Simulated scan of single mutants.
Amino acid sequence: MRIFSSIVLLVAAPLLAHAAPPAPAKLPDTMEQRVAACVACHKAKEEGDAFFPRIAGKPAGYLYNQLLNFREGRRKYPMMSYMVEQLPDAYLREIAQYFSDLHPPYPPPAPNSATPAMIERGRVIVHEGDQSQRVPACIACHGEKLTGVAPAIPGLLGLPRDYINAQFGAWRNKVRKAHEPDCMADVANRLSEADVAAVSGWLASQPADAEARPVGTEVLPRWVKCGGVPQS
């Protein structure tokens, strides 16, 4: 009997080895499931870090424009370009709207090395600009509370300092572009490195209100015309 059992096992083993694996669990067809790859980098709670910024709550038009920019080469980051290169405009709009509708709490500001003098210089540029360099105040375009302006201007609070510095560098080096006229590239090239450090130091040290939302009225300086932003 033992010999017979052993023979049966020897014969059955190859058949069992080639048996079909169990069917994988069916995932729900929801936008949350579809954008799981996005959240893997931008974090489930949308906190952002030095490499992957918070995108929750940004104006949908801004997010859509950035997805287009990655797809069409105006912004360069291989992983992002690969993920969106085959996606149609309508689907990119759906993704943008999904993240725009999310409003998780902001994390507290992380400590940074900006000195009090740098912080004050940054505050002045953010709120008043620098007429000598023809640099407008950040609040003139990004909103008085820096929460962004619908449909296409992002908020600036809750972004890590390293990320802000990196984006200024990308505009200076033409790695990041927008439709012409590219006003942020112009601003980035007018600011000195010290002023960029001051602005990023001030922005990154400001707490963000969990109830903050983009405002709905654009008030742009008359001499500033930005590609991708509807003009009144």
Rank of each mutant, 00 (worst) to 15 (best):
D162K: 15
E193Q: 15
A170P: 00
A166D: 13
N189V: 04
D186P: 03
A197G: 13
N173E: 15
A197L: 11
D182Y: 04
D186Y: 11
C183D: 00
R161H: 07
E193W: 12
M184A: 11
V196G: 06
A198M: 08
K174W: 10
L203E: 08
D182S: 02
F168K: 01
W171A: 01
L203T: 07
G201L: 06
A198T: 07
V175Y: 03
D186F: 08
Q167M: 10
E180K: 11
D162C: 11
C183L: 04
A185D: 04
N189E: 09
D209V: 01
Q206T: 04
G169S: 12
A198S: 15
A208R: 06
D182R: 01
D186S: 12
A197Y: 07
I164M: 14
M184R: 09
E193M: 15
E193C: 08
A188V: 04
A178P: 01
K174Y: 10
D182A: 02
Q206K: 13
H179G: 09
Q167F: 02
A204I: 02
A188L: 05
D186N: 11
C183I: 00
A185S: 14
F168S: 01
F168G: 01
R161S: 05
L191T: 03
K174H: 12
C183G: 05
Q167T: 11
K177F: 06
S192M: 05
G201Y: 01
Q167P: 04
R172K: 13
H179D: 14
R190E: 01
Q206V: 08
V199D: 06
Q167W: 03
D162Y: 09
R172F: 00
L203C: 09
V196D: 05
G169I: 07
Y163H: 13
P160A: 10
D162N: 15
A197D: 15
Q206E: 11
S200C: 12
P207L: 00
R172L: 02
N165P: 02
E180C: 07
H179R: 11
D186V: 14
P207W: 00
A170C: 07
Q167A: 09
S192I: 02
D186T: 14
A197K: 13
S192V: 03
P181V: 04
P181N: 07
V196Y: 08
R161K: 13
D162H: 13
A208E: 06
A178C: 12
R172W: 00
C183Q: 00
R161F: 03
S192E: 07
P207Q: 00
N165S: 14
R176S: 02
F168C: 07
K177R: 14
M184T: 09
D186I: 12
A204E: 01
V187T: 06
A185E: 08
A208T: 10
Y163M: 10
V187A: 01
P207T: 03
R190H: 02
D186W: 14
N173S: 15
A197E: 13
L191V: 05
D186A: 14
S205Y: 03
V187E: 00
N189Y: 02
A210Y: 07
V187H: 00
A208C: 10
L191E: 04
A185C: 06
V175L: 12
